[in-house]
Design a protein around this nucleic acid. Structure first.
Length: 280
DNA sequence: GTTTAACCCTGCACGC
DNA sequence: TGCGTGCAGGGTTAAA
């Protein structure tokens, strides 16, 4: 789950979960459920900090989701690859790989489902958020209004790294994963292996605009749901952006702009897709 | 400083 | 049918 999917989830939670009070919380008995709450030694240590409290705000930092609670605690969630929240109720059976269930006083529940269990969830205090190492490393959000192209240009010039891994580096810019970094680079007309400090001012501007346009567009389409990854929103509904993808997962198929076959290559261990004609 | 590889995990496609 | 292998990709960490 990358920035657009986390943002769609945040908006759903803001509408449907913020304001609700937690009546009960359960960490399921599986080994993977303990993996999800790996920062807490015991289940009770985690659930005790939730029960009786009300969600007051849903915030996003890069790919992290912060669910604030009254009383000053925060539930921090990172979805990894296959993690997601799903609204449900007692009458509905828990789907496989459900690790955490939060019951609301007003009825209904919130399930955390994560087949690959690469996600993580923990409770901390708002005061100690600044001490969480992972959150400290989250760089500026490309959709933040304080993210200016001049600042972006300086940051790119200060590094000599290939664009694709750099865009996926959460300490450089936050929120991009494998799918959106490829889509952004296509929209900017830049190759994955261009070095960040070789970009002209015009190319930097193109990349800056591509970041915002692609991410905003993906949020408007409620995220990308691929067959295998099966991201769905809080209510189980798939996104629509997979129909808008220009390069990701399209190896061998004609480029939507110039008909040249899309190529795929391994970059920093990730399969990357690009158009050899449109991107330079 | 930058890049690579290994690790965590499950489901699925693949070849034999 | 069933087994082993490799891949998918979020991130971190250690090593090159």
């Amino acid at each position: 789950m990358e920035l657009p999917e986390v943002e769609v989830m945040r908006r759903d939670l803001e509408k449907d979960v913020v304001g609700r009070r937690i009546a009960a919380a359960e960490v399921r008995p599986s080994r993977n459920a303990m993996r999800i709450i790996r920062r807490h030694a015991r289940r009770k240590e985690f659930t005790d900090r939730l029960v009786g409290h009300r969600f007051t705000k849903a915030e996003r930092r890069g790919k992290y989701l912060l669910l604030h609670l009254d009383g000053g605690d925060v539930l921090v969630v990172h979805f990894g690859m296959s993690g997601r929240f799903l609204r449900g109720n007692k009458r509905q059976a828990l789907p496989p790989h459900t690790h955490v269930v939060i019951d609301f006083q007003q009825g209904g529940d919130l399930r955390y489902i994560d087949p690959r269990a690469l996600g993580e969830m923990f409770v901390t205090t708002t005061d100690e958020l600044g001490k969480v190492k992972e959150l400290q490393h989250v760089a500026i959000d490309p959709l933040d209004h304080v993210f200016t192209w001049q600042q972006f240009a300086a940051a790119l010039a200060a590094r000599a790294a290939k664009l694709k891994p750099l865009l996926m580096d959460q300490g450089f810019i936050s929120g991009l994963g494998n799918i959106y970094s490829d889509e952004v680079l296509f929209a900017a007309g830049l190759r994955h292996d261009r070095l960040s400090n070789t970009l002209s001012a015009q190319e930097v501007r193109r990349l800056y605009r591509a970041l915002q346009e692609v991410l905003q567009d993906a949020i408007r389409h409620r995220g990308t749901t691929l067959e295998d990854e099966a991201y769905v929103d809080l209510f189980g509904k798939p996104g629509e952006y997979q129909h808008e993808l220009k390069v990701y997962g399209r190896a061998g198929q004609p480029c939507r702009r110039c008909r040249t076959p899309i190529e795929s290559v391994k970059v920093a261990g990730r399969t990357s897709y690009f158009c050899p004609q449109c991107q330079s």
